[in-house]
Design a protein around this nucleic acid. Sequence first.
DNA 1: TCTGGGGTCCTAGGACCC
DNA 2: TCTGGGGTCCTAGGACCC
Length: 414
Amino acid sequence: METQPTILHADLDAFYAAVEQLLNPDLRGKPIAVGGGVVLAASYEAKAFGVRGGMPGRRARELCPQLIFVSGHFAEYRRLGDAAIAVLGDFTPLIERISIDEAFADVAGCTHLFGTPAEIAATIRQRVRDELGLPISIGVARTKHLAKIGSQVAKPDGLVVVDPRRELDFLHDLPVELMWGVGPIAKAKLNEQGILTIGQLANTPGRSIERLLGVAAGEKLAALAWNRDPREIRTHHRARSAGAQSALGKRRPDDRIVQPTLLHLADRVASRLRAKSLAGRTVTARVRFADLRAVTRSITLDAPIAATTMLAEIAGELVRQELADHPREKYISLLAISVSHLDEQRALQLDLPLGLADERRRPGAKTGMARWTADKAIDKIRERFGWDAVGYGSALETSRSVPDEFRKLAEKEL
DNA sequence: TCTGGGGTCCTAGGACCC
DNA sequence: TCTGGGGTCCTAGGACCC
């Protein structure tokens, strides 16, 4: 007797655009894009013209002159995304949420209550349609990889159940780029070798794939191509890093730009860490130049930090080194800060100034205790009055190319 | 007319330790 | 003087995913 396919992958179709068309009936059936300077999301009608997420608004308008731009209803995305995932939650607690609009679920334990996995998937799709007004595609299979591919094949607004007896038949005819982990670069390398389908990949010697894509990727893809996917549903993820970035257009790497930008980024990252009683030992700063080449520099500290000004200063030093290493670069186009090696801070330690030892090297600087107190005070005010009530980096308001609400949607739970 | 912002994981070289 | 090997951590870059 075979294992039944009980893994579902559910994926809301063109989610942000679908929400806009739900909220405003005039937009239904029309090519729309959420965003302005940059396309954050496009409706299927717009995708038909080649409009894609991340594309400059101007380019999108060239491709599709009748494209309608709408500013996003980000709070609605949050609400409806959560509501859709909650429908899954009515069937099983075994849910792994991937993003605002996508999740895996394992329904093995509830088929006696609700019917076969295929019936459950059909019910979920109907309920999301009826209760929320949104199309959602679902793949059902024995593994996450097949379920994910199933939902991609099912789009838009479809359901695909992969018959356990026909898994390799299903898989091997599909193009390699449908596999998890095959992006534009890997696809090009594989295609160059005449490998177009997953079946062709499966029948290529493991060694040549590893030579092409590296050992880890080669082994992973070979396993997936033969339908060996050991990954299980993971309901609790621990984030391994937290970061923030800001595109700047094209600017001279001037302290008057760099410092306030880094302070703002540090503020975003550090306050998120403090809210979850986390701190991190490794600070990474990224500078992108005008030609979009980027360099990173990182430092691993002896003790984890979560203080805004300290993070900003360390990032500032890293950025200074990067700029010094590239004296011929006249312009920068992006700054980013990331903190990793995250560690849970015990409540007791949290009330103490972290990195106090650093003060010795900075005579005259604010003490660690003073900084910590200032951070905590800001956190408290924000708890009561909202993020914008107080903080750093207000000078940057005008240069923000993407709304903060959009950023928040992309943040993973720490 | 060069594209936003949040992440994860892998690779490769070097330092350092036993 | 030249010779071995394994393991861990750090750093920089890159591919990929949503």
